[in-house]
C-alpha cells in the first residue's frame, strides 16, 4: 500500500470545481485510490473517484488529506492526484 499526503490548495476547499477536476482524474487512473483526512483510520478512507464522498469529506483549504493506492502504477497515480490537490484551481 502506497501512501501520500497533500495539502488542499484551493481556497474553496475540496468541492465545486476543484473536486470535479480531482474526481475526473481519479476515475481515469488504472488503480483505485482512497482519500481520508490526516489522522483518520485507513479503513474509513473514501473512494477518491466519488464526488459525493468528497463532499462528505469536507476538506477545507489548508487541510491535509491522505491518498492511498495499491498495485502497478500506484506511485504515478498518487503523484498525479497530489499535484491536482496542491494546485489552486480558483486562482
Amino acid at each position: 500500500m502506497k501512501e501520500r499526503t497533500a495539502t488542499i490548495a484551493s481556497r474553496v476547499g475540496l468541492h465545486a470545481r476543484p473536486a470535479a477536476i480531482f474526481v475526473e482524474a481519479a476515475a481515469e487512473l488504472p488503480v483505485d485510490v482512497t482519500i481520508s483526512m490526516q489522522g483518520e483510520p485507513a479503513e474509513d478512507a473514501l473512494d477518491a473517484s466519488s464526488i459525493l464522498s468528497l463532499m462528505g469529506l469536507g476538506a477545507a483549504h489548508g487541510d491535509v488529506v491522505v491518498l492511498r493506492a495499491e498495485g502497478d502504477g500506484a506511485d504515478e497515480a498518487l503523484e498525479t492526484l497530489v499535484q491536482i490537490l496542491e494546485t489552486d484551481h480558483d486562482a
Binding site: R17, A20, E24, S50, I51, L52
Partner: peptide, 16 residues
C-alpha cells in the same frame, strides 16, 4: 457549466 459538470459526476458516482 460548473454546476452541470459536478452534477454529471454525481450521476455515475461510485458511492451512489
Amino acid at each position: 457549466k460548473a454546476v452541470l459538470e459536478a452534477t454529471a459526476l454525481m450521476a455515475a458516482d461510485p458511492m451512489l
